[in-house]
C-alpha cells in the first residue's frame, strides 16, 4: 500500500470540467480570480471562450451564474468555499436557490486542510449554510475518483448543486470501478459494533480507524456519505439500527454539517442510538501544514477510533 495514489479533489474537479466541456458545449465555467487554485484553469485552457472570469467579485459572479442559467447554460461557478457559501450566501439563496436554477457551485479549499492560509480561509461552515437553502444538493466527495464522478453526475442533474472540494492531496479510496449513486450513502465495509458515517477526506480516515478498532476487537461498519443533502437516511439508519451506535466524521464544524444531519435522521426515525460527532469542534482554524492541522483538530483516524469506543460505551450505558 506504499504506492497509494494521492490527488486533491480540486484537481479532479478541474479535470472533470474539461471532460464535460468536451461533450457538452452548454457547459460554462465561471471563476472569481482563483482559476489556478480552484483548477478551473484547466477548463480555461481547453475552452477559453466558455470560461468567464469575474475577477474578485463572488456576489456578482453568483448572480451572473443565475442569469446565465436562465438562458439555457449549465453553469459551474467556482471560488473558495469561504466565498461561495459565506460571502455569496445570500446571492446563492435568492438568485440561485429560490428560482432553483441550474447552477453548480464548485467550492474548493473547504475545511481546515487549506493549511497555512489560516482561519480566514478555512471554511468549516459551508455545509451548514448550504443545507439551510431549500432544494440545494450538497456533495462532498471523498477522493478524486468520487469527485470526478460527482461532477459528471451534477451536470446531468437539473437544479442547484453545491460541490465541496479540498486543496490537500488525499489518498484515493476508490478505483475506476467506482460508480456515483445520486443521493445515496454507501456501506464501504460491513461491521457490527459501530457505524462510522464519514464524508470528504474523513472517509479515508474512517477506513484507517476501522483497522485501529479491529486491533482491539471492535468491528466497525464504514458508511461513505458523499451526498449530505438530500441525506440517505434509510441506509444510515438501517446501519445504525444494526450496530447500535454511530460516529460521524467530517472536516466541518460539528454544528450544522453531516453530524447534525445524521443526528436529525437518527432522532426523527426513532432509531434511538447514540451519535458521537467528529469534526471541527466549534472553533476557528489556524495556520499550519494541512496534515498537521488535521491531527491538531482531531480530524484523523485515531480520534474517530476513540469516539467509536465512546459511542459503544454510550450504547452499553443505555
Amino acid at each position: 500500500m506504499s504506492d497509494v495514489i494521492k490527488m486533491a479533489t480540486r484537481d479532479a474537479y478541474g479535470k472533470a470540467l474539461v471532460e464535460l466541456g468536451e461533450k457538452n458545449d452548454k457547459v460554462i465555467v465561471l471563476d472569481a480570480d482563483l482559476a489556478a487554485a480552484t483548477k478551473t484553469g484547466m477548463f480555461k485552457k481547453a475552452f477559453p471562450s466558455r470560461f468567464i472570469d469575474s475577477g474578485i467579485q463572488e456576489s456578482n459572479m453568483m448572480g451572473v451564474a443565475a442569469g446565465l442559467a436562465t438562458t439555457g447554460f449549465t453553469v459551474f461557478a467556482s471560488t473558495f468555499a469561504m466565498f461561495a457559501a459565506g460571502r455569496a450566501f445570500e446571492q446563492v439563496r435568492n438568485s440561485i436557490g429560490y428560482p432553483h436554477l441550474n447552477v453548480k457551485i464548485g467550492a474548493t479549499h473547504a475545511g481546515i486542510s487549506v493549511g497555512e492560509d489560516g482561519a480566514s480561509h478555512q471554511c468549516c461552515e459551508d455545509i451548514a449554510l448550504m443545507r439551510s437553502i431549500p432544494g440545494m444538493v450538497i456533495i462532498n466527495p471523498a477522493d478524486a475518483v468520487e469527485a470526478r464522478a460527482a461532477v459528471l453526475a451534477a451536470a446531468e442533474y437539473e437544479g442547484p448543486v453545491y460541490m465541496r472540494f479540498g486543496r490537500l492531496a488525499v489518498p484515493c479510496v476508490f478505483d475506476d470501478s467506482y460508480e456515483f449513486k445520486w443521493g445515496k450513502a454507501v456501506i464501504l465495509s460491513e461491521g457490527k459494533d459501530v457505524t462510522i458515517c464519514a464524508t470528504g477526506l474523513m472517509v479515508n480516515e474512517a477506513i484507517e480507524a476501522k483497522k485501529l478498532l479491529a486491533n482491539e476487537g471492535i468491528d466497525a461498519e464504514i458508511v461513505n456519505v458523499p451526498t449530505i443533502k438530500p441525506l440517505d437516511a434509510e441506509t444510515i439508519c438501517a446501519s445504525a439500527s444494526k450496530t447500535g451506535c454511530v460516529v460521524t466524521a467530517e472536516e466541518h464544524n460539528i454544528i450544522g454539517g453531516l453530524g447534525s444531519a445524521v443526528s436529525e435522521a437518527i432522532c426523527e426515525t426513532g432509531t434511538c442510538v447514540p451519535v458521537v460527532r467528529v469534526g471541527v469542534n466549534d472553533v476557528f482554524g489556524k495556520s499550519g501544514p494541512a496534515v498537521e492541522l488535521l491531527h491538531i483538530f482531531g480530524l484523523d483516524a485515531q480520534n474517530i477510533a476513540d469516539k467509536a469506543k465512546k459511542a459503544i460505551s454510550l450504547k452499553k450505558q443505555g
Partner: peptide, 8 residues
C-alpha cells in the same frame, strides 16, 4: 447581476 448573466 442576473441581468448581466442573461446578456452574457
Amino acid at each position: 447581476s442576473a441581468a448581466c448573466g442573461m446578456a452574457l
